[in-house]
Write a protein that binds this DNA or RNA. Sequence first.
DNA 1: CTGAAAGCGCTTACAG
DNA 2: CTGAAAGCGCTTACAG
Lengths: 339, 339
Amino acid sequence: MVTIYDIALKTGFSAPTISKALNGTGGLSKSTRKKILTVAEELGYRPNMAARSLTTKKSFLIGIIFEDIDMQRGFEHPLFGGILNRLRMEIEVSGYDLIFLSHLSMEKRNSYVEHCRYRNIDVCVVINPVNADKSIMELASSGIPCVSTNFVIPGIPTVITANKEAGYNAASYFIRNGHKKIAYISGSYTRYNVAALDRLEGLRQAEKEFGLQYDESYVEYCPQWTRECGYKAMKSLLGRHKDITAVFVSSDNMAVGAMEYAKSAGMKIPEDISFIGFDDEMFSEFYSPPITTFRQNRTVIGELAAEILMNRIAGIPVSECVLIPADFIIRSSVKNMHS
Amino acid sequence: MVTIYDIALKTGFSAPTISKALNGTGGLSKSTRKKILTVAEELGYRPNMAARSLTTKKSFLIGIIFEDIDMQRGFEHPLFGGILNRLRMEIEVSGYDLIFLSHLSMEKRNSYVEHCRYRNIDVCVVINPVNADKSIMELASSGIPCVSTNFVIPGIPTVITANKEAGYNAASYFIRNGHKKIAYISGSYTRYNVAALDRLEGLRQAEKEFGLQYDESYVEYCPQWTRECGYKAMKSLLGRHKDITAVFVSSDNMAVGAMEYAKSAGMKIPEDISFIGFDDEMFSEFYSPPITTFRQNRTVIGELAAEILMNRIAGIPVSECVLIPADFIIRSSVKNMHS
DNA sequence: CTGAAAGCGCTTACAG
DNA sequence: CTGAAAGCGCTTACAG
């Protein structure tokens, strides 16, 4: 392993001078700088991050908080996996490396913040935390610069899908197609992740604007974002109301569960009952019928999150919250009641 | 930040003694060890990895080589994403952290090996490398302990799906169902990743055993694992041979492309032509018809890779290559010609 | 069983 | 514009 001392020896300059040349700090003369850089190149010098990190307290490490207990899908999560893909692309060209922060190693590190200290992590991305309440609040107030996607946490800038708008669009699409009794199957929510509720709020707003009566008994809240939950939710909804003609579901995965129940109850989709989902999963176009749904803009979310992160590193002020519209993808799971 | 010197001050012992107590090295008396540990706990001491890494040349960092150029699916890759999920679970409880090695940062680091040196990375997992030839060979011979999944690289132990066996099973299933003219659509392959070829080899062996004639003109090689390629491959295959009744395809994704072409050519599946795919994607059960396919055992592969890695870290000898059978999932895309 | 000394590879004031 | 000194927080021989 070649160190700055090897370069010092070969060039005749001192270690601090080598350091300054390598980092472009300090006012060195062009010629010595060039000489040093040349020798560094010749020798195949690479900095030792541990040494650098020990003195500077920086690490060029970006902590990724990405865990997935609920859905058991991990990297294959339809939204989070996609965001992480793009985020990674954007970030890696900058010379930073990505490292996962994990609750599994918590017993040794107690919290995300301690994990950050342990590794001198410079900055964090909150994509999907676990046990959010304690450890995320601690992170938000730790002084470690963060950005989050889809989690709204006080003190952390967020890039998030415009969920309310999407809910509004789903409902007005139903209404314009002649539906009047619209049910909603909600995914689970937490203090920091209220996507499912925001979508409902958009739906209510549309109903109000179009003069429809909102009725809470047409809403079913699920404890998890799974097919099974969608199935059960549909069952109770249909047990309560025979007049439902349209259902907006928080995710395509849950929508499949709901549709499976409707089918098992002898209903035809969309002839007897219509559905709109969320996420545009890989299976959504192939389901029978192909599912009308929303596609969250993973690419843009990932890009913007990376941009905000880089700005935070550079000390540039950053907006608190940016909303990204979801694309509405119309397929065949909604019936036009007028025709 | 509390350091070992703070503990030294408070306990009256020297820094080396604190270090030994914390690490469980050196023969300290029970009482001083206990005293030190208690104070460390009180003070909320956390080791500084940079300092530790600087002296020990270890980092408790596991480098993940996981890139995805071809398929553009990244973490959502049906095989690699799943493997990474499990691998991560297994590894994080051990106190190691995962860090991504990337070709995007190559210009600054030149190779995976240099990236490893730069971060003092202890050990690597090769899940899906890019530009494999140069940088992977260098890694294999670098002395850095590695394990790979699905890539067979000299000098690196591998956990991999039993592809030949799967190909054999696919072909014999076709044959037992009365098919005689079996085509194969191959995904792309490289020197280190010959899954698509291994599956073909299994198919040929089955044909041979069952007394069928192998004909290379019934094979189509694709440059990429995409739907478009599957579509084109099916087109040329059908252009060459009218008598094909069954097609084995390297992936469900490509199979969808192939089936779309068959449909567009007016063929019914499986009435006119049968298909077996690979991967069991999320959409495979919902496609029309539901696709008969193989499911690679991501969980077992991830687990075993982690186990091998831990053994390598511990210096325990490890087997060169372990083959994991894929589950055959029978759905409705194959016709029984006997009935 | 415990500690004094030295070093890991780098950077940061501070002098000159 | 360049360098001597000190330090980042830890561990490793080596003494005793």
